[in-house]
Design a protein around this nucleic acid. Structure first.
Lengths: 111, 111
DNA sequence: CTGATACTTAGGCATTTGCCTAAGTATATC
DNA sequence: GATATACTTAGGCAAATGCCTAAGTATCAG
């Protein structure tokens, strides 16, 4: 049993929103200013900033302010952690299915 | 730009809770009855059932009632979908880093 | 048929979320 | 110095979340 990782709470919560996932997708192509990121969304700036705060708290993005512009960068470590958890679960599941297959084959050969 | 997948909202939301992740982890070893699943958690049954409802709505588990016992099974398809999304994001990120490396090397060679 | 078991439904309540408007503050630009 | 730009803070509000207790219903066991 993997121990409880509070970080995953924040990461998965952050990814549960379409706006926030879209931000992550855009940041894959490289850093962007806040207003640039916000542009495609029909949303007031303060609402959008809240999404960025959620992403930053989850450790999925970093931000640095230069002059009056804040630039946002993707921070992939937590993304990998989430991917790792999912991968582990799939592994477990598939291992179990293989065991079932083995049992079924053994069973067949007996008949 | 991948199109908006509402299913991911539900899946990531479901995974954002430690109780629900623990349920998924346990189900990796095979189907379980509701009361069996609920046993490790210091939580009233109705509260636990709500978590199961969230997982089922997200398509992460299936449940079937036989007699008075409801048996819960892991349904890995949505889990894979989430893993796929994360994998795509990582790919994008790494591709971009490779391009940056290339640029840096080209730059060095010029000097 | 009487209990015990395994959920299930109904309702309540504090907190969190996701959005908003209005009014700041801190750079640039003219 | 006046105006525009790029956030930022403060506050408000409806809906969703995560927990609870109390009171069902539907098997199963004796």
């Amino acid at each position: 049993m993997p121990k409880y990782q509070p970080a995953l709470d924040a990461v998965f919560h952050a990814l549960a929103d379409p706006t926030r996932r879209a931000v992550i997708e855009r940041l894959g192509r490289g850093p962007r200013a806040v207003s640039q990121l916000a542009e495609p969304f029909a949303m007031a700036m303060p609402s959008f900033l809240q999404h960025l705060r959620v992403l930053e708290k989850a450790g999925l993005i970093r931000s640095r302010k230069t002059g009056r512009v804040r630039t946002i960068t993707l921070a992939p470590r937590q993304l990998k952690k989430a991917e790792g958890w999912l991968h582990t679960q799939r592994d477990l599941w598939e291992q179990r299915l293989d065991q079932l297959d083995f049992l079924l084959i053994t069973f067949k050969e007996q008949s």
